[in-house]
Amino acid sequence: MTQYYFIFNQELCTECNSCVIACVQKNEEIDGQLRRVLPHPISISCNHCQEPLCQEVCPVNAINKRPQDGIVTVNSEECIGCKRCAKRCLYQAPYFSETKMKTYKCDLCLDRLNNKMLPKCVESCLMQAIELKQEVELSNKEKNLIANNSLPNSGVIKPNYILKKIEER
């Protein structure tokens, strides 16, 4: 299995929100946003955790972690809209659509990945602050960052998200 990792470099981010706009444009039919920019700044979406809480709580097993690349997807045909996953996720990644009464979440733009293109958010980032790498491509420094991840509660659910902090001045 080659797990995908989001790498976010705080130093480069200018809070331009272009990643959010690109994501919303790509997922027009969902009528909501799957990626957010928090004030620090942190651009965050689904982290495709190693042990996803959303998958654990789904009553109809509609959420799946793909064994080949570790992408966590929702099967919208099976989803019954109980909102459990949206409530329980610590990073609020699943989005409950009121119009469709179903939950949607980031799937790393699977259709683009299959055509060997990068996800929309990564492509749209002006400063290239967001990167997407596979496990094999990570450098030693980045592997170190995974071990002591600074996201909250990362010890329990192991999010696959690498945060490069601004060095304290």
Binding site: V57, R84, R88, N153, V156
Partner: peptide, 13 residues
């Protein structure tokens, strides 16, 4: 307290 908050209090620190 709702079921979700209960669960979070039990499992996650």
């Amino acid at each position: 307290v709702c079921f979700n908050c209960q669960y979070v209090a039990e499992v996650i620190i």
